[in-house]
Design a binder for these strands. Structure first.
Lengths: 131, 131
DNA sequence: CTTACTGTATTAGGTACCTAATACACAGAG
DNA sequence: CTCTGTGTATTAGGTACCTAATACAGTAAG
């Protein structure tokens, strides 16, 4: 499905949350489709079930997932996207972080932009492989 | 000098380390120039002196700073830059993270690249202001 | 020497996160 | 009903990080 990056300082539950949002945004997870059970995904990612549960709960509160108790968890019929304000804010924050680390290691805008393009291709290709 | 971002999941000492590296890479801190004392920078960033000390220690081990005990800390005469392998690795990692969050909030490559350019301009302009 | 500033080290306490081990309520299959 | 698999909740323990309060060794200036 996706992987956890141990070097990423972000908490694991946030990585899971973002991973699911990414799959939904890419269309790899379509509305109504089931997502792995808490225990299955936890076993797959080699992570504690509680951590996955926390991510699922946040995604449910955020309107991305819907849960049918005792049965399973599914992508919401109309998965909510972040509003423009939040999206721009989050994007700006992430861009600042990326620019900061790029400059700090001695890279320029061109190198950073090129690596970004590669990263996009990599992510998209990775999720075109198993639709 | 620079600011600490509380929303950044990265540890504060790492943000400080990256901030100093950024200033050195931008030329805002030139070789031989003194950096603020541990206590001064801690007071400026409203952070514990131990946290700043940890960052300075890592920067010293990394060859970016040199310390004259009892006198102060200075930018190394020839500040070491990360080797190409490490730089590319770090840049690739950062690009992956940025691309991941961009996609997860529903943004495309164009929007991400545009925001990246803005971020670069912002950072450079911010450090051209007080040379 | 005294004072004031450096970097460094130690100890303690608090918070967030992750793990582990359970337990409970609900839905579906046999 | 029994069994299995859902999501959810609770409790405990460990680690990393940050803070706070000191203390020590070295340098420079009065």
């Amino acid at each position: 499905m996706f992987a956890i990056n141990p070097t990423d300082p972000a908490p694991i539950w946030r990585q899971i949350e973002e991973g699911v949002r990414r799959l939904v945004a890419l269309g790899a997870l379509k509305p109504g489709a089931p997502v792995p059970s808490v225990r299955d995904l936890a076993k797959d990612l080699r992570v504690n079930p509680n951590t996955v549960a926390r991510a699922y709960q946040r995604l449910t509160e955020g309107g991305v997932l819907t849960v049918r108790r005792g049965e399973g968890t599914y992508v919401a019929d109309e998965p909510s996207q972040p509003k423009r304000a939040e999206r721009n804010g989050a994007l700006r924050d992430a861009a600042n972080r990326y620019a900061s680390t790029a400059i700090s290691v001695g890279s320029g805008l061109e190198a950073a932009a090129g690596e970004l393009e590669s990263a996009f291709e990599r992510v998209v290709r990775e999720h075109r492989r198993k639709p």
